[in-house]
Amino acid sequence: MQEQNELIKILVEKHGRTRNALMPILQDIVAEKQFLEPSDIALVAEELDLSAADVYGTATFYTFLDTVPRGKNVIRVCKTISCYMSGKDEIINALEKVLNIKVGDTTVDKQFTLLTANCMGWCHKGPVMLINDDVYHSLTPEAAIEIVQQYKEKSKN
C-alpha cells in the first residue's frame, strides 16, 4: 500500500493533476505493475479530483489498461487478417501448450498472461506477438516457444 501510494504520488507530480494527465498516469502504473487495481483507481481519482467511476470508465475503454490481474509478462498475439493468413492459430496453439493455459488466462505462477489483440502494424512480417512492449515478428511455433522459454529463464534469475 505504501509503495503504491508512493508510485502514484510520483506519477501525479510528473504528469500533473489535470484530467489531461490521466492517460499518462494510468499508462505508467500499468507499465510498472501490469494492471490497475481498484485501489489504484481510487487513489488516482482522489489525486486528480475526479470520481472513481470516471477514472474506471476511462480505464476500461482501453485494451492495454487492464483492470483484471495480469501476469508479469503479457503476451498478445495478433489475430487480424494478415496474421490470420500467415498462421496465428498455430502460434496460439503452441503458446497455449507451452504455458499450459488458454487465451485469456494467466499462469499459476503469475509470470505470463496470454491474450490476442488486433493488428499491431507488422502485417508484412506475420505472425506477430507483443510481449509487454517488445515485438516479435515472422514467428514460427518453435520460435514463439523459444522466446517464451527465454522469458522464463530471465524470471528465474
Binding site: 489531461n20 490521466l22 492517460m23 500499468v30 476511462t58 482501453y62 485494451t63 488486433n118
Partner: peptide
C-alpha cells in the same frame, strides 16, 4: 492504449483529454 478508434481524430482528442 490499444484502441483503433482513437485514430479517429475526435476520439483521439477525447483520449488525450483523459
Amino acid at each position: 492504449s490499444g484502441a483503433y478508434i482513437c485514430g479517429e481524430e475526435s476520439a483521439l482528442f477525447e483520449s488525450m483529454e483523459g
